Amino acid sequence: MTTRVMLISPAMNPAVREARFDDGCSIEAAGVARARSAADELRPAAPVLVSPTVRCRETAAALGLDARAEPALAGLDMGRWRGRTLDEVGAREPEALARWLADPAANPHGGESVRLLCARVGGWLEEAARSAGRTVAVVEPEVVRAVTVRVLGAPEAAFWRIDVPPLTASEFTGRAGRWNVALGTALGRGRA
């Protein structure tokens, strides 16, 4: 039995452009237009899921996907850093930021650690692997990173080394506990 999971990163929003931890702002008009232009590239899938964030829900809608929110695919809970820029956090809490970036178990912001995110998303992936077929989900970039770390058996410290550009599709194909990975295919350039 083969399982296919396609994870689509959401369109750009002001928080990403400003290197700010997501605060629930909407995607930009250019992102909506780009997603709409790529909508007919996506093959049918069941289930179609979405991270419960505003930008993921708006991206899924622009892609024409009738997606169900999946809490296990939520982005990283940034606690009290939510809405702050990376520069602001670095200026106010340089040691905490350095610890958070270096230690996957750290959560100085009071939210969720990278380790906990990887475990949560890994649990979801194990469930998805039990069913044949194709799943499509619009998720935050950190969810794509967590799945990538998990399927490659990479150390959680590799999490920050994975770039996930906006509106890209990453595909994970698994059978018998072994996964193949195709990362970062730009939407709008062929069939996804």
Rank of each mutant, 00 (worst) to 15 (best):
R34W: 13
R34K: 10
A35P: 14
R36M: 11
R36Y: 08
S37G: 14
S37R: 14
S37V: 07
S37P: 10
A38H: 13
A38M: 12
A39G: 00
A39D: 00
A39V: 00
D40Q: 11
D40G: 12
D40I: 06
D40H: 11
E41W: 10
E41C: 10
E41V: 08
L42I: 15
L42F: 07
R43W: 10
R43H: 14
R43K: 12
R43N: 11
P44F: 07
P44G: 14
P44T: 12
A45I: 06
A45C: 09
A46W: 10
A46H: 12
P47H: 07
P47N: 08
P47V: 05
P47K: 05
P47Q: 07
P47A: 09
V48S: 01
V48Y: 00
V48E: 01
V48W: 00
V48P: 00
L49R: 11
L49E: 09
L49K: 10
L49V: 12
V50P: 10
V50G: 11
V50I: 11
V50S: 15
V50Q: 09
S51V: 03
S51P: 06
S51D: 14
P52I: 00
P52T: 00
T53V: 04
T53N: 06
T53R: 09
V54E: 13
R55Q: 11
R55A: 10
R55L: 07
R55D: 09
R55Y: 09
C56W: 04
C56K: 02
C56T: 12
R57G: 10
R57C: 10
R57M: 10
E58M: 04
E58W: 02
E58L: 03
E58A: 03
T59E: 00
A60C: 06
A60S: 06
A60I: 03
A60H: 03
A61W: 00
A61I: 02
A61Y: 00
A62F: 01
A62N: 01
A62G: 01
A62E: 01
L63C: 02
L63G: 01
L63A: 01
L63D: 01
G64V: 03
G64W: 04
G64N: 05
G64I: 04
L65W: 01
L65P: 02
D66L: 07
D66T: 07
D66I: 02
A67C: 05
R68W: 01
A69W: 02
A69C: 05
P71G: 05
P71H: 02
A72L: 08
A72D: 09
A72H: 04
A72S: 07
A72T: 05
L73A: 04
L73K: 04
L73W: 05
L73F: 06
L73D: 04
A74E: 08
A74N: 04
G75C: 06
G75P: 05
G75I: 03
G75D: 13
L76D: 06
L76S: 05
D77F: 02
D77W: 02
D77E: 13
D77R: 06
M78D: 12
M78F: 15
M78R: 11
G79R: 07
R80K: 11
R80P: 05
R80Q: 13
W81G: 07
R82S: 15
R82L: 08
R82T: 15
R82H: 12
R82M: 14
R82I: 11
R82V: 13
G83Y: 14
G83L: 13
G83V: 12
G83Q: 14
G83K: 13
R84A: 15
R84N: 13
R84Q: 15
T85Q: 14
L86E: 08
D87I: 11
V89A: 15
V89Q: 15
